[in-house]
Design a protein around this nucleic acid. Structure first.
Length: 555
DNA sequence: CTTGCCTGCCC
DNA sequence: ATTCTGC
DNA sequence: GCAGAATGGGCAGGCAAG
């Protein structure tokens, strides 16, 4: 039986260790000392979770709620936000507040929580719902925070945020299990992907390490899907394998579909069950796939059946978490399913079959369901032509697959390579930014980027981005930016429009949030344009044209 | 009854 | 999702 | 090459505030 404070101390220690093997050693000793009834729970908490991965997070707590809790405990919010800004980490800020004693605590009768106690408290919070539940949640958390030490408060704060930053994620836990039980790391990784949750795997091994041999894909139990790495171009693809199978990469949601008899379940890439939102897909599967037991994978895409073209991602996303008026939305936003893999068929696991054979089997059982359009070629010009075809349909691009590759659950591997295009870069001016967190606490990390509204002369924001430059470049940039500072509001700093950056992005979207009416998807800075001035940036009018052009090409 | 904030999860 | 960094 | 970290737009749903 371990105390929550012991966990907090171990993690504090681990956070400061750089050397991987030492980190694994320290953490493994702790994990090894856990009882069975606290093992799974502890691993979940280390990762900032309270459940198996396929269960939706229900804490309904994050930074805003935590700050309200602290405020109620008499914490000076000015002091807190200044500490937060300085440390770049709310957990760290909370720890310092506790150390300074600037919070109302149960001084004399503080409860000493075990790990299981904390877990049970969090479960109670998860079960709060209905009118008044927000307030109850806050009251409940106050009750817990009142009894904590500085390190415990830091840990709880990070768990509640679901953002741990102790340098321990699933990969490290995998290494620990490998170290503790002397099982090959690759084997652990695959078992983890198949079971879908690392805590459950740990419990499995605790019962009997030989259980690793019994881990297998089960129907109606989601496994982590195989993923693709990024390729820069077609040469990159052919350097890895040739010939290659190229499939259209649609812009929808990845679906892992399990079927037995008349029962069907649909899981997302992150293992969440979305069956309820897609009765049309369930029906499609039942009407077409006649085999009894099947696991297939595909992409669910919002579809315009008049033009026979995909609809933008924003459309399918209106259906993903929908729970009401589903039948109305089935008509309003119809979907199309493109299958691209088969993992299980009537008692036979197909993960060790070569890709090309899996595809053949899929072809035989699919009924009238579409497969992703695919060609096999070793010629760059053919691949490029196929890419154009896909992109002209407004797809993301292609996925290249090695013909004899196996299906390795959970693996991001060079045997699948995604080739994506992006639109012409835009020159945008920096009008604001936010101080970063963690490693990036000392510079402006997130940039607010704007285009010029030609009609009014205003600079209107079209995106935020923190990607593309190296830490050093951000440090340099921050120095320059601060010369043009207008005002600072908490973490946000506003600048005079001066410094211009070239920005790459995947798509222009209609934005309900920005005044400009447009937003960039996956924006990243390509380079700083020191040679350009704020007068040289792209205009909102040009962005509108680019957006319309996207539309026009759809016909 | 409408609007807005917060959370969780798609990409 | 994309990108960068440290091991 | 891997694991970890730092963060994007936008959607639905749940609750609170106006």
């Amino acid at each position: 039986m371990k105390y929550f404070s012991e966990l907090a101390e171990i993690l504090e220690k681990v956070e400061k260790i750089n050397e991987k093997s030492l980190k694994i050693d320290v953490l493994s000793r702790f994990i090894k000392s856990l009882d069975k009834n606290e093992l799974k729970i502890t691993i979940w908490l280390i990762l900032g979770n309270t459940e198996e991965e396929w269960v939706e997070r229900k804490l309904n707590v994050s930074i805003s709620t935590i700050i309200k809790v602290l405020k109620n405990l008499g914490v000076n919010i000015k002091e807190l936000s200044s500490l937060y800004k300085k440390s770049g980490d709310l957990g760290e800020a909370v720890k310092i507040i506790y150390e300074r004693g600037n919070i109302k605590l149960n001084k004399w009768f503080a409860k000493k929580y075990t790990i299981i106690d904390i877990y049970n408290e969090l479960k109670k919070i998860e079960n709060l719902e209905g009118e008044g539940s927000r307030e109850k949640r806050i009251l409940y958390l106050e009750g817990i925070y009142k009894n904590l030490s500085p390190l415990e408060a830091k840990l709880l704060t990070r768990i509640l945020q679901g953002d741990m930053r102790y340098g321990v994620l699933e990969g490290t836990i995998e290494d620990c299990l490998s170290y503790i039980y002397g099982i090959d790391d690759e084997k652990i990784k695959i078992a983890h992907a198949i079971i879908g949750d690392i805590g459950v795997l740990a419990e499995y091994l605790f019962d009997n390490p030989k259980n690793i041999e019994n881990v297998n894909i089960r129907l109606f139990h989601p496994f982590k899907p195989m993923l693709a790495e990024k390729a820069n171009n077609f040469q990159d693809v052919f350097n890895n394998f040739s010939p290659a199978a190229f499939e259209f990469k649609f812009d929808g949601i990845r679906a892992q579909i399990h079927k037995r008899g008349n029962e069907v379940k649909i899981f997302t890439r992150r293992l969440k069950d979305v069956t309820k939102s897609f009765p049309d897909v369930v029906e499609l599967i039942l009407n077409n796939i006649k085999n009894n037991e099947v696991v297939v994978e595909g992409e669910i895409v919002a579809w315009d059946y008049n033009k026979n073209l995909p609809l933008p991602f924003q459309e399918i996303s209106k259906r993903i978490k929908r729970e009401y008026e589903i039948s109305k939305y089935i008509k309003e936003i119809p979907v199309k399913l493109f299958l691209f893999d088969i993992i299980y068929l009537d008692g036979k696991l197909l993960i060790n079959e070569e890709y090309i054979n899996r595809r053949k089997i899929l072809e035989e059982i699919r009924g009238n369901i579409d497969l992703t359009p695919m060609i096999i070629t070793s010629k760059e010009d053919e691949a490029k032509k196929f890419f154009e075809e896909s992109v002209n349909m407004k797809n993301e691009g292609l996925v290249a697959k090695k013909l004899d590759s196996k299906y390795i659950p959970g693996k991001r591997d060079k045997s699948w390579l995604k080739v994506k295009g992006h639109l012409e870069p835009l020159d945008l001016v920096i009008i604001g930014g936010e101080w970063g967190h963690g490693r990036r606490k000392n510079f402006i990390s997130d940039l607010y980027l704007a285009a010029l509204d030609k009609d009014t002369g205003e600079y209107l924001m079209v995106t935020k981005t923190f990607k593309g430059l190296s830490d050093n470049e951000y440090i340099q940039l921050t120095k320059e930016l601060l010369k043009y500072k207008i005002k600072e509001e908490g973490r946000i700093v506003w600048f005079k429009p001066k410094i211009v950056v070239e920005v790459i992005y995947d798509e222009i979207q209609k934005s309900p949030k920005y005044k400009s009416g447009f937003a960039l998807r996956f924006a990243r800075v390509n380079r700083i344009r020191w040679d350009k001035s704020e007068k040289d940036v792209n205009t909102i009018q040009e962005i509108r044209e680019l957006y319309e052009k996207q539309r026009k090409e759809e016909i």
